[in-house]
């Protein structure tokens, strides 16, 4: 089932980090010359991925603290080798799957996705990963399974943030089965072709690009297929603010802030806000999943 989706965001070419950085300098250097018009339209698209530094130093991973820099500071304490994922519930082959065994069975491909946080900031991330559907197929989805539930590692000795009950650990997330099997939904194992850093959810994390970032649960140790909608951390903690679906939707505000616009990380102190796209720009691919649903009710 791999290669079911083609990147619509591009590097221009498969840009290594240093070239990407240079390109930005080139664009900046062109300003004021006759070439500025062409360069300006290029940068206005903002389709280029964020830098490695941006992606790996500005994270929400509350197990390591609530500050944006905390994960980059403390996540190195997390041991990710050995790692296994328990797959259970309504599957034919329940059990502990080691990360190495999973990787050897999966086709890893590159997916350049928009990433939109519920806090109204966003990035473009060049993930490497495999489709969650392939992993679930390996476990054998049983008739009657309707949802997938996910759990993050909870190891307090390596996770200073869990000393506080910021949320009810371990972190939990969930998807409807059709969302989980959608070709856009991946398990990411890398960024920029390198192994995914701990602060970004090593060794494997979910990425659901049309939903707010907190749905894309990190450092997964358990996947359970169920017939009931599973409880998820944020919707349990503050049900009035976070729902099960949490699809990116500029028309449905978070009670504490507007979701109509977002700020792309990397623009500096005078960065302009830009309009948020329905389903984070993946409307053509996923809108049909929610046909007939009231998205203001099912937020």
């Amino acid at each position: 089932m791999a290669h079911r989706w083609k990147n619509d965001l591009s590097y221009g070419d498969v840009t290594p980090e240093h070239v990407y950085l240079n390109r930005r300098q080139v664009i900046a250097g062109l300003a004021g010359t006759g070439l500025a018009v062409a360069a300006g339209s290029l940068s206005a698209e903002t389709l280029e991925p964020n830098s490695w530094e941006e992606i790996t130093t500005y994270n929400n991973f509350y197990e390591f603290g609530t500050g944006k820099e905390d994960p980059a500071k403390y996540a190195h304490q997390m041991k990710t080798d050995p790692w296994s994922v328990k797959i259970d519930g309504l599957v034919d082959n329940p059990g502990e799957y080691s990360f190495q065994d999973i990787l050897s069975e999966m086709t890893v491909e590159e997916r350049i996705y928009r990433f939109r946080c519920v806090e109204a900031w966003s990035m473009i991330v060049p993930w490497n990963g495999f489709e969650l559907g392939d992993l679930l197929a390996m476990a054998g989805v049983q008739e009657g399974a309707k949802y997938a539930a996910f759990e993050t590692l909870l190891r307090p000795s390596e996770m200073p943030g869990t000393a506080y009950r910021t949320i009810d650990w371990p972190y939990r997330e969930g998807l409807r089965l059709d969302e989980a099997l959608h070709p856009l939904t991946i398990m990411a194992t890398g960024i920029y072709g390198k192994p995914i850093p701990n602060q970004n959810g090593a060794p494997l994390r979910l990425v659901v690009p049309w939903k707010y970032g907190f749905k894309s649960i990190k450092s997964i140790v358990r996947i359970t297929l169920t017939d009931k909608e599973p409880p998820t951390s944020w919707s349990t903690l503050i049900p009035g603010e976070y729902g099960f679906y949490s699809n990116v939707n500029p028309k449905v505000d978070h009670p504490r802030w507007s979701q109509a616009s977002e700020r792309r990380i990397g623009g500096g102190l005078f960065s302009k806000r830009q309009p948020t796209l329905m389903f984070n720009g993946y409307e053509n691919e996923v809108a049909s999943l929610y046909e007939g649903m009231d998205l203001a009710q099912n937020y």
Partner: peptide, 18 residues
């Protein structure tokens, strides 16, 4: 702080940081 934010010394999201 303003100078740090303008020169990339307040992290990758200087507006919120400031």
């Amino acid at each position: 702080w303003l100078w740090m934010g303008a020169t990339g010394r307040l992290g990758v999201e200087p507006i919120s940081a400031l």
